[in-house]
Computed example of a mutant assay.
Amino acid sequence: MSVSLGIQASRRRPEPRAILTLIKPITWFPPVWAYLCGVVSSGVPVMSAPWLVLIGMVLAGPVVCGMSQAANDWCDRHVDAINEPHRPIPSGRIPGRWGLWIALVMSAAALALGATLGPWGFGATVFGVLAAWAYSAEPVRLKKSGWWGPGLVALCYEGLPWFTGAAVLSAGAPAWQIVVLALLYAVGAHGIMTLNDFKALEGDRQTGVNSLPVTLGPERAARVACWVMALPQVAVIALLTGWGQVYHAAAIAALLGVQVWAMRVLLSDPKGRAPWYNGTGVTLYVSGMMVAAFAVRTLV
Rank of each mutant, 00 (worst) to 15 (best):
L184Y: 10
L183V: 15
G151M: 09
S91A: 13
G149C: 07
S91Y: 09
G159F: 14
W162E: 04
W162I: 09
L181P: 05
A71N: 04
L117T: 01
A109I: 11
V126I: 12
C75H: 14
I102R: 06
L111Q: 01
A81G: 07
A70F: 11
A70E: 00
W148N: 03
Y185P: 08
S136H: 05
I82Q: 00
G128E: 01
G99H: 09
N72Q: 05
R93G: 05
A171K: 11
R87V: 04
W120K: 00
S145D: 06
E84K: 15
G121S: 01
C156F: 15
I89G: 08
R77L: 04
F127W: 13
K144D: 03
G114F: 02
M106G: 10
A166D: 01
T125Y: 04
E84G: 10
I102P: 04
A112W: 02
H78I: 11
N72H: 10
V105S: 11
A186Q: 09
C156I: 12
L169R: 03
A182Y: 14
I82H: 00
V140F: 12
Y135H: 02
G118W: 00
Y135A: 04
A60I: 05
V58E: 01
I102C: 07
A70S: 11
P161W: 08
Q69D: 08
S145V: 14
L104R: 11
L130C: 11
R93V: 05
V126D: 01
R97I: 14
R77H: 04
F127M: 08
F163G: 14
A71D: 00
A171D: 10
S136E: 01
V126L: 12
S107M: 09
A109C: 13
W98C: 12
S68L: 05
I102E: 02
Q177N: 11
L59V: 08
K143L: 04
A186S: 15
P95I: 07
I94F: 11
W176D: 08
G151Q: 03
Q177H: 11
G159D: 10
V129C: 08
L184K: 09
A103Y: 06
V129G: 07
T125P: 04
A186L: 12
L181V: 14
L113S: 02
E158V: 15
G92A: 09
A81E: 02
F122W: 02
A137M: 09
G56M: 10
I82P: 01
K144R: 14
V105Y: 06
L100Y: 14
C75T: 10
V153M: 10
D80Y: 05
A166I: 06
G172T: 04
F163I: 15
Q177W: 13
A175F: 14
G66V: 07
I89E: 03
F122C: 01
P85A: 03
L169H: 03
G61N: 03
A137W: 12
A110H: 03
C156M: 14
I94N: 06
R93W: 05
V129Y: 06
V129L: 10
L160S: 12
V64Q: 09
R97G: 15
V180P: 08
P85Q: 01
L100V: 09
G66C: 05
A108K: 00
G92P: 07
T164M: 15
I94G: 07
W162R: 07
G146W: 04
G96D: 01
V168G: 01
I178L: 14
G165C: 10
G159V: 14
W120V: 00
